[in-house]
Design a binder for these strands. Sequence first.
DNA 1: CAGATGAAATCGTAGGACGATATTGACGGC
DNA 2: GCCGTCAATATCGTCCTACGATTTCATCTG
Lengths: 220, 220
Amino acid sequence: MNAPATIGTTEKVADAIRSGIRTGQFVPGQHLVEAELTLRLGISRSSLREALRHLSGDGIVAIHRYRGAHINRLTRREVRDLLEVLEQLVRLAARLGAASGHANRSLMDAALHAARRHDEDGDHRSYIAVRQAFYDCLFEVAGNRELPRVTPLRRADLFRAQIRPYQTRAQQDSHTEGYRAIAQTVNDGNVEAAEAAVAALFAQTHAMVDELPDVAFDVD
Amino acid sequence: MNAPATIGTTEKVADAIRSGIRTGQFVPGQHLVEAELTLRLGISRSSLREALRHLSGDGIVAIHRYRGAHINRLTRREVRDLLEVLEQLVRLAARLGAASGHANRSLMDAALHAARRHDEDGDHRSYIAVRQAFYDCLFEVAGNRELPRVTPLRRADLFRAQIRPYQTRAQQDSHTEGYRAIAQTVNDGNVEAAEAAVAALFAQTHAMVDELPDVAFDVD
DNA sequence: CAGATGAAATCGTAGGACGATATTGACGGC
DNA sequence: GCCGTCAATATCGTCCTACGATTTCATCTG
């Protein structure tokens, strides 16, 4: 009922590019030539352009008139701004999720179990998948349907892709541990602890951003 | 330098629809037929479809496969969710603006002066213009460039358009007074008071939503 | 080597074509 | 008279071609 019926070409293309960013197939800063992409994806230019327009709305690609589209590459400042906004929204989600002792705790648990299992693989794709599952679940528990629409998770994927080469395994583990802590406190219905857990996770991420080399970011 | 160079047809069309919503030319729930709009706006279908895709990303229009696009009409619940998210983001903006005693106080003052002057006209368009100017200014003072990208102000315009017939003049005045209070506290650099002013404004809006008749909203 | 210049590449927009699907209204059975 | 079936129509989704506009880049000239 709630399903958006059939899926269109535009969405498929947008998903292809989004997941291409997560898998490393597309790199932040990369120039996207329409003619090449239409061949590669086997679609028409109209569909591709609609998809690019869609992605530009999410801040994933930037379109410059007569110069084409390219995968956005964030500056250090843009990352800080992004994290600042993201933290508020995740805090809201955690607060709402913890406040209304919702039934969907199993979902959250599932996401976390998946986290641990994939954690052992040490694969980056699984790390991203865990992140996605975690947020999907968190938003569902929060019960606010505006939250997933507004939260710039796709934009954060750009950040993840940029810092990938400079992130240690320990940092990843520490990050997923942050997810676990949030899930724990939300499931316990402990509003204050949940907000604190979110704050801790983002404080850690901010610290990481400060330590990363300039080369990981776009110039201002 | 930072200007997005020349403006394209797609953006013009999107702006036309957005401002059409504010002026009442387009009504939430209205069906948008591509053939009609291409004639009315004097553009090709390609450009129109790109614009519609862009707007759908902002949640302003909804596109259903083979059934076309229509201006979104929010349910009461969607409005509540929207306000909940919006409040967090505006709070962040107010906090940031108040914290860093930025120089752009004149801008904020200008927006508020315009508010009072237009207030005397009692025109709805001016009310919307004031709102836009206020938020533009607030975001600039906050200095977080992710904030204007993420904040669902365009979606809130839908809400404004829906409740327009049921909103009293006193409520409008009270709302602009809320803006004034936020601007005041932000300019004073009083972080706590600024957050409190935002909370008060949204509490008032939530109360209004509770009192509005069902007919003002879409069915669930 | 700096700047002008022209060709090539690429984008922006228009417009047509055709299959796919939803909507609508007519039709007949109950 | 009401309800399900079915065809006609409207509209959308996608592809295609075309051509002007603009940038980009290699080349030429001084």
